[in-house]
Amino acid sequence: MYMQTRGERIFSYFNYILLFVICIVTLYPLWHVAVASISDPILVFAKRGFYLWPLGKATLKGYSLVLNNPNIVSGFLNTLFYVGVGTTLSMVVTILGAYVLSRKGLYWNKVVMGLIIFYMYFQGGLIPFFLMVKNMGLMDSRWAVILPTVVNTWNLIVMRTSFTTVPDSLIESAKLDGASEWRIVWVIAVPVLQATVAVIALFYAVGRWNEWFNPSLFFTSKNKYPLQVILREILLKNSTQSMTQIGVVGQSEQESYRLLVKYCTIMVATVPILLVYPFLQRYFIHGIMIGSLKG
Protein backbone atom coordinates (compact mmCIF):
# COMPACT_ATOMS: atom_id res chain seq x y z
CA MET A 1 0.00 0.00 0.00
CA TYR A 2 1.20 3.47 -0.90
CA MET A 3 1.99 5.73 2.04
CA GLN A 4 1.46 9.47 1.92
CA THR A 5 4.46 11.66 2.58
CA ARG A 6 4.21 14.68 4.89
CA GLY A 7 4.22 17.06 1.93
CA GLU A 8 1.42 15.16 0.32
CA ARG A 9 -0.67 15.37 3.47
CA ILE A 10 -0.19 19.12 3.61
CA PHE A 11 -1.11 19.29 -0.04
CA SER A 12 -4.21 17.27 0.66
CA TYR A 13 -5.45 19.69 3.33
CA PHE A 14 -4.61 22.63 1.18
CA ASN A 15 -6.51 21.02 -1.69
CA TYR A 16 -9.66 20.53 0.40
CA ILE A 17 -9.61 24.14 1.49
CA LEU A 18 -8.93 25.48 -2.00
CA LEU A 19 -11.80 23.51 -3.49
CA PHE A 20 -14.07 24.76 -0.74
CA VAL A 21 -13.21 28.35 -1.58
CA ILE A 22 -13.80 27.72 -5.28
CA CYS A 23 -17.20 26.27 -4.41
CA ILE A 24 -18.22 29.34 -2.45
CA VAL A 25 -17.13 31.68 -5.21
CA THR A 26 -18.77 29.78 -8.03
CA LEU A 27 -21.95 29.15 -6.09
CA TYR A 28 -22.68 32.85 -5.80
CA PRO A 29 -24.34 33.64 -9.16
CA LEU A 30 -26.95 30.94 -8.72
CA TRP A 31 -27.41 31.78 -5.08
CA HIS A 32 -27.94 35.42 -6.06
CA VAL A 33 -30.67 34.43 -8.50
CA ALA A 34 -32.32 32.09 -6.01
CA VAL A 35 -32.34 34.68 -3.26
CA ALA A 36 -33.50 37.48 -5.54
CA SER A 37 -36.36 35.36 -6.86
CA ILE A 38 -38.07 35.29 -3.47
CA SER A 39 -37.18 38.81 -2.32
CA ASP A 40 -39.40 41.86 -1.98
CA PRO A 41 -39.56 43.15 -5.58
CA ILE A 42 -39.25 46.81 -4.63
CA LEU A 43 -36.07 46.16 -2.71
CA VAL A 44 -34.65 44.01 -5.50
CA PHE A 45 -35.14 46.92 -7.84
CA ALA A 46 -33.58 49.40 -5.45
CA LYS A 47 -30.71 47.43 -4.00
CA ARG A 48 -28.47 46.07 -6.66
CA GLY A 49 -25.23 44.23 -6.25
CA PHE A 50 -24.14 41.86 -3.58
CA TYR A 51 -26.52 40.27 -1.11
CA LEU A 52 -26.72 36.93 0.59
CA TRP A 53 -30.23 36.68 2.00
CA PRO A 54 -33.69 37.50 0.64
CA LEU A 55 -34.43 41.20 0.83
CA GLY A 56 -37.49 42.11 2.84
CA LYS A 57 -40.24 39.60 3.37
CA ALA A 58 -39.84 36.46 1.29
CA THR A 59 -42.53 35.99 -1.35
CA LEU A 60 -43.45 33.33 -3.88
CA LYS A 61 -45.48 35.76 -5.96
CA GLY A 62 -42.91 35.79 -8.75
CA TYR A 63 -43.13 32.03 -9.10
CA SER A 64 -46.89 32.09 -9.20
CA LEU A 65 -46.76 34.68 -11.99
CA VAL A 66 -44.42 32.47 -14.00
CA LEU A 67 -46.02 29.12 -13.27
CA ASN A 68 -49.57 30.34 -13.83
CA ASN A 69 -48.82 30.66 -17.52
CA PRO A 70 -51.14 28.19 -19.28
CA ASN A 71 -48.36 27.01 -21.59
CA ILE A 72 -45.86 26.06 -18.90
CA VAL A 73 -47.01 22.46 -18.51
CA SER A 74 -47.18 21.68 -22.21
CA GLY A 75 -43.81 23.40 -22.65
CA PHE A 76 -42.28 21.25 -19.96
CA LEU A 77 -43.68 18.05 -21.46
CA ASN A 78 -42.49 19.06 -24.92
CA THR A 79 -39.03 19.74 -23.55
CA LEU A 80 -38.98 16.31 -21.91
CA PHE A 81 -39.81 14.83 -25.31
CA TYR A 82 -37.10 16.78 -27.12
CA VAL A 83 -34.52 16.02 -24.45
CA GLY A 84 -35.45 12.34 -24.22
CA VAL A 85 -35.85 11.45 -27.89
CA GLY A 86 -33.25 13.93 -29.09
CA THR A 87 -30.54 12.83 -26.69
CA THR A 88 -31.14 9.14 -27.32
CA LEU A 89 -30.99 9.58 -31.08
CA SER A 90 -27.93 11.83 -30.84
CA MET A 91 -26.10 9.34 -28.65
CA VAL A 92 -26.75 6.41 -30.99
CA VAL A 93 -25.59 8.29 -34.08
CA THR A 94 -22.64 9.91 -32.31
CA ILE A 95 -21.38 6.74 -30.67
CA LEU A 96 -21.56 4.73 -33.89
CA GLY A 97 -19.99 7.51 -35.95
CA ALA A 98 -17.29 8.30 -33.42
CA TYR A 99 -16.39 4.65 -32.97
CA VAL A 100 -15.95 4.07 -36.68
CA LEU A 101 -13.99 7.27 -37.13
CA SER A 102 -11.67 6.25 -34.32
CA ARG A 103 -10.74 2.94 -36.01
CA LYS A 104 -7.48 2.92 -37.87
CA GLY A 105 -7.06 1.66 -41.40
CA LEU A 106 -10.40 2.73 -42.81
CA TYR A 107 -9.88 4.30 -46.19
CA TRP A 108 -12.73 6.84 -46.06
CA ASN A 109 -12.24 8.02 -42.51
CA LYS A 110 -9.94 10.87 -43.48
CA VAL A 111 -12.39 12.11 -46.06
CA VAL A 112 -15.31 12.02 -43.65
CA MET A 113 -13.29 13.75 -40.91
CA GLY A 114 -12.28 16.40 -43.43
CA LEU A 115 -15.91 17.02 -44.36
CA ILE A 116 -16.88 17.26 -40.70
CA ILE A 117 -14.11 19.69 -39.79
CA PHE A 118 -14.81 21.82 -42.84
CA TYR A 119 -18.48 22.01 -41.87
CA MET A 120 -17.47 23.16 -38.39
CA TYR A 121 -16.17 26.35 -39.94
CA PHE A 122 -18.23 26.90 -43.04
CA GLN A 123 -21.97 26.92 -42.75
CA GLY A 124 -24.65 28.10 -45.10
CA GLY A 125 -26.50 30.35 -42.68
CA LEU A 126 -30.09 30.67 -41.64
CA ILE A 127 -31.99 31.08 -44.91
CA PRO A 128 -30.78 28.01 -46.84
CA PHE A 129 -31.05 26.00 -43.63
CA PHE A 130 -34.64 27.10 -43.22
CA LEU A 131 -35.41 26.27 -46.86
CA MET A 132 -33.91 22.83 -46.32
CA VAL A 133 -36.21 22.14 -43.37
CA LYS A 134 -39.14 23.37 -45.42
CA ASN A 135 -38.25 21.26 -48.46
CA MET A 136 -37.89 18.18 -46.31
CA GLY A 137 -41.49 18.76 -45.28
CA LEU A 138 -40.59 19.18 -41.62
CA MET A 139 -42.26 22.54 -40.98
CA ASP A 140 -44.35 22.49 -37.83
CA SER A 141 -43.15 18.96 -37.08
CA ARG A 142 -41.34 18.02 -33.90
CA TRP A 143 -38.66 16.40 -36.03
CA ALA A 144 -37.69 19.83 -37.33
CA VAL A 145 -36.25 20.47 -33.89
CA ILE A 146 -34.55 17.12 -33.48
CA LEU A 147 -33.19 16.06 -36.87
CA PRO A 148 -31.21 19.12 -38.01
CA THR A 149 -29.19 19.13 -34.78
CA VAL A 150 -28.81 15.42 -34.15
CA VAL A 151 -25.03 15.49 -34.30
CA ASN A 152 -22.95 18.09 -32.53
CA THR A 153 -19.53 18.18 -34.17
CA TRP A 154 -17.67 19.08 -30.99
CA ASN A 155 -19.27 16.19 -29.13
CA LEU A 156 -18.54 13.84 -32.00
CA ILE A 157 -14.88 14.77 -32.04
CA VAL A 158 -14.49 14.42 -28.28
CA MET A 159 -16.22 11.06 -28.37
CA ARG A 160 -14.00 9.92 -31.20
CA THR A 161 -10.90 10.98 -29.31
CA SER A 162 -11.82 8.92 -26.29
CA PHE A 163 -12.55 5.89 -28.44
CA THR A 164 -8.97 6.09 -29.69
CA THR A 165 -7.80 5.42 -26.12
CA VAL A 166 -9.49 2.01 -26.13
CA PRO A 167 -6.62 -0.42 -26.67
CA ASP A 168 -6.67 -2.23 -30.00
CA SER A 169 -5.87 -5.47 -28.18
CA LEU A 170 -9.22 -5.30 -26.46
CA ILE A 171 -11.08 -5.03 -29.73
CA GLU A 172 -8.96 -7.62 -31.50
CA SER A 173 -9.48 -10.17 -28.76
CA ALA A 174 -13.21 -9.59 -28.93
CA LYS A 175 -13.11 -10.12 -32.67
CA LEU A 176 -11.29 -13.38 -32.18
CA ASP A 177 -14.08 -14.41 -29.86
CA GLY A 178 -16.40 -13.86 -32.84
CA ALA A 179 -18.05 -10.60 -31.73
CA SER A 180 -19.52 -8.43 -34.49
CA GLU A 181 -18.51 -4.77 -34.76
CA TRP A 182 -21.98 -3.75 -33.57
CA ARG A 183 -21.56 -5.89 -30.47
CA ILE A 184 -18.06 -4.58 -29.81
CA VAL A 185 -19.33 -1.00 -29.74
CA TRP A 186 -22.07 -1.58 -27.24
CA VAL A 187 -20.63 -4.36 -25.11
CA ILE A 188 -16.99 -3.34 -24.95
CA ALA A 189 -16.22 0.21 -26.11
CA VAL A 190 -19.15 2.01 -24.48
CA PRO A 191 -18.85 0.38 -21.03
CA VAL A 192 -15.10 1.05 -20.99
CA LEU A 193 -15.76 4.72 -21.66
CA GLN A 194 -18.94 5.02 -19.66
CA ALA A 195 -17.89 8.26 -17.94
CA THR A 196 -17.23 10.01 -21.24
CA VAL A 197 -20.42 8.62 -22.73
CA ALA A 198 -22.32 9.96 -19.73
CA VAL A 199 -20.72 13.38 -20.13
CA ILE A 200 -21.50 13.56 -23.84
CA ALA A 201 -25.08 12.55 -23.08
CA LEU A 202 -25.18 15.35 -20.52
CA PHE A 203 -23.89 17.82 -23.10
CA TYR A 204 -26.54 16.77 -25.58
CA ALA A 205 -29.28 16.88 -22.96
CA VAL A 206 -28.25 20.33 -21.75
CA GLY A 207 -28.07 21.56 -25.34
CA ARG A 208 -31.59 20.29 -26.01
CA TRP A 209 -32.85 21.69 -22.76
CA ASN A 210 -31.58 25.17 -23.55
CA GLU A 211 -32.63 25.16 -27.18
CA TRP A 212 -35.03 27.93 -28.20
CA PHE A 213 -33.92 29.31 -31.55
CA ASN A 214 -34.82 26.49 -33.92
CA PRO A 215 -38.09 25.61 -32.17
CA SER A 216 -39.20 29.23 -32.40
CA LEU A 217 -38.51 29.23 -36.15
CA PHE A 218 -40.19 26.03 -37.19
CA PHE A 219 -43.43 25.95 -35.24
CA THR A 220 -46.53 27.83 -36.15
CA SER A 221 -48.45 26.51 -33.18
CA LYS A 222 -47.56 27.09 -29.58
CA ASN A 223 -48.50 23.60 -28.46
CA LYS A 224 -45.18 22.23 -29.70
CA TYR A 225 -43.04 24.94 -28.12
CA PRO A 226 -40.47 23.71 -25.62
CA LEU A 227 -40.23 25.26 -22.17
CA GLN A 228 -37.43 27.66 -23.09
CA VAL A 229 -39.47 29.37 -25.79
CA ILE A 230 -42.40 29.82 -23.40
CA LEU A 231 -40.12 31.20 -20.69
CA ARG A 232 -38.49 33.53 -23.19
CA GLU A 233 -41.88 34.95 -24.05
CA ILE A 234 -42.66 35.51 -20.39
CA LEU A 235 -39.27 37.13 -19.91
CA LEU A 236 -39.59 39.42 -22.92
CA LYS A 237 -43.12 40.34 -21.98
CA ASN A 238 -41.83 41.41 -18.60
CA SER A 239 -38.64 43.06 -19.70
CA THR A 240 -38.08 46.70 -18.92
CA GLN A 241 -37.23 47.23 -22.54
CA SER A 242 -40.59 46.15 -23.93
CA MET A 243 -42.45 48.12 -21.31
CA THR A 244 -40.62 51.36 -21.91
CA GLN A 245 -40.70 50.99 -25.66
CA ILE A 246 -44.36 51.80 -25.56
CA GLY A 247 -43.42 54.86 -23.54
CA VAL A 248 -45.89 54.33 -20.80
CA VAL A 249 -46.33 53.51 -17.16
CA GLY A 250 -48.29 50.90 -15.38
CA GLN A 251 -49.40 51.51 -11.86
CA SER A 252 -50.15 48.18 -10.33
CA GLU A 253 -48.03 45.72 -8.50
CA GLN A 254 -47.34 43.68 -11.60
CA GLU A 255 -44.90 46.29 -12.76
CA SER A 256 -42.73 45.87 -9.72
CA TYR A 257 -42.76 42.13 -10.19
CA ARG A 258 -41.06 42.40 -13.56
CA LEU A 259 -37.61 41.92 -12.09
CA LEU A 260 -38.77 39.12 -9.86
CA VAL A 261 -40.24 37.35 -12.86
CA LYS A 262 -36.83 37.51 -14.50
CA TYR A 263 -35.15 35.71 -11.63
CA CYS A 264 -37.96 33.21 -11.18
CA THR A 265 -37.88 32.39 -14.87
CA ILE A 266 -34.19 31.62 -14.66
CA MET A 267 -34.76 29.35 -11.69
CA VAL A 268 -37.56 27.46 -13.44
CA ALA A 269 -35.44 27.21 -16.57
CA THR A 270 -32.32 25.83 -14.89
CA VAL A 271 -33.08 23.89 -11.73
CA PRO A 272 -34.55 20.78 -13.40
CA ILE A 273 -31.52 20.31 -15.64
CA LEU A 274 -29.14 20.99 -12.75
CA LEU A 275 -30.52 17.93 -11.04
CA VAL A 276 -29.37 15.60 -13.81
CA TYR A 277 -25.66 15.78 -13.15
CA PRO A 278 -25.55 14.23 -9.68
CA PHE A 279 -27.24 11.16 -11.14
CA LEU A 280 -24.67 10.89 -13.90
CA GLN A 281 -21.79 10.96 -11.45
CA ARG A 282 -22.24 7.30 -10.62
CA TYR A 283 -20.79 6.51 -14.02
CA PHE A 284 -17.57 8.26 -13.06
CA ILE A 285 -15.86 5.09 -11.86
CA HIS A 286 -12.17 4.39 -12.21
CA GLY A 287 -10.75 1.20 -13.51
CA ILE A 288 -13.52 -0.14 -15.73
CA MET A 289 -10.97 -1.21 -18.27
CA ILE A 290 -9.37 -3.74 -15.99
CA GLY A 291 -12.67 -5.43 -15.59
CA SER A 292 -13.26 -5.81 -19.28
CA LEU A 293 -9.73 -6.93 -19.96
CA LYS A 294 -9.96 -9.66 -17.40
CA GLY A 295 -13.53 -10.56 -18.18
Partner: peptide, 25 residues
Amino acid sequence: PQSYTANIANGKVGACGLAYGELGQ
Protein backbone atom coordinates in the same frame (compact mmCIF):
# COMPACT_ATOMS: atom_id res chain seq x y z
CA PRO B 1 -31.28 51.36 -18.03
CA GLN B 2 -32.14 49.29 -14.99
CA SER B 3 -29.15 50.44 -13.02
CA TYR B 4 -29.78 54.03 -14.11
CA THR B 5 -33.38 54.06 -12.89
CA ALA B 6 -32.56 52.12 -9.73
CA ASN B 7 -29.96 54.73 -8.85
CA ILE B 8 -32.57 57.48 -9.13
CA ALA B 9 -35.12 55.54 -7.08
CA ASN B 10 -32.50 54.91 -4.42
CA GLY B 11 -32.32 58.62 -3.63
CA LYS B 12 -28.77 59.00 -4.85
CA VAL B 13 -29.71 61.36 -7.65
CA GLY B 14 -30.85 64.97 -7.48
CA ALA B 15 -31.38 65.58 -11.19
CA CYS B 16 -31.60 63.39 -14.26
CA GLY B 17 -32.88 62.93 -17.76
CA LEU B 18 -35.73 60.47 -17.94
CA ALA B 19 -38.56 59.19 -20.10
CA TYR B 20 -41.87 59.29 -18.32
CA GLY B 21 -42.33 55.60 -19.11
CA GLU B 22 -39.87 54.86 -16.30
CA LEU B 23 -41.63 57.08 -13.80
CA GLY B 24 -44.00 54.52 -12.29
CA GLN B 25 -41.35 52.14 -11.04
